[in-house]
Computed example of a mutant assay.
Amino acid sequence: MHHVASALEIFPHAHLTGPAMQIMTIRLQVGGIQFYWLADMSDPEVWQATDAWRKLKTIPVVLGHADRVAYVVANYEPKTRRLDEFRADVRPEPLPDFLDTVANVACSGIIEARATTDLAGVELERVVVNVLVSSRLERYVGRMVVHGEAITADGVPTVH
């Protein structure tokens, strides 16, 4: 049996050439593997999911690789409502450079470098960082370029 921990956090990122944006990190640790999803805090779909998780006090996650799939239900009982201060930033469309910025953050190694275990006595073996692509962001994914390399839903780096 794997130990599971989950958390939602804010990863503030100020973009140098445009307005500031907030990136929500959704973190799940299963054993020694920690998964991060970087999400657009201005996306109403992200807030709908957050509200559902709060109500149910769980976060359902499907993890898959090749032909293997695991279903995980993590407990979610936030001690504060700190994220709610960012609800006012919801807008109908993402900032034009959001996906490029968040993909650069995902590829930069900063998340992996700062990651610490959420499970007492369990060392991190691996940190996997993904971009959470909601339905409003899907149409932009095919056009993304990071570090000169195109990113697609099935390309490298992984975008989910």
Rank of each mutant, 00 (worst) to 15 (best):
H2N: 15
V4T: 09
S6Y: 11
S6K: 00
A7C: 05
E9N: 13
E9L: 14
H13P: 00
A14D: 13
H15A: 08
G18D: 15
G18Q: 12
M21Q: 15
M21G: 11
Q22F: 13
T25E: 11
T25P: 03
I26K: 05
Q29F: 02
G32N: 09
G32T: 08
G32S: 12
Q34P: 07
F35M: 04
A39M: 05
D40A: 02
S42A: 15
D43H: 02
E45N: 03
E45F: 02
V46D: 01
Q48G: 04
A49P: 00
W53T: 02
R54Q: 11
K55W: 07
T58L: 03
I59G: 01
I59L: 04
P60I: 02
V61I: 08
V61N: 01
L63C: 00
G64W: 02
H65Q: 13
H65N: 10
R68N: 14
R68T: 15
V69F: 13
A70E: 13
V72E: 00
V73I: 08
A74M: 01
N75S: 14
Y76D: 04
E77Y: 06
K79S: 12
K79H: 08
R82F: 15
D84P: 04
F86E: 06
R87K: 15
R87Y: 09
A88R: 14
D89T: 14
D89L: 13
V90N: 07
V90A: 06
R91C: 08
R91Y: 04
P92L: 04
P96S: 10
P96W: 10
F98A: 04
T101W: 05
A103P: 01
A103M: 15
N104S: 13
A106P: 09
S108C: 08
S108W: 08
G109Y: 00
I110S: 10
I110P: 00
I111E: 05
I111R: 02
A115R: 05
T116N: 10
D118K: 01
L119A: 05
L119E: 09
L124R: 01
E125R: 11
R126I: 06
V131M: 02
V133C: 10
S134L: 05
S135Q: 14
S135F: 04
R136N: 07
L137A: 03
E138D: 13
E138M: 12
R139D: 09
Y140G: 05
V141R: 02
R143M: 10
M144S: 06
V145R: 08
H147D: 15
E149L: 08
E149K: 14
E149W: 04
I151E: 07
A153K: 12
D154M: 12
G155S: 15
V156N: 12
T158F: 04
T158V: 09
V159H: 01
V159F: 06
V159Q: 02
V159T: 10
H160L: 04
H160W: 07
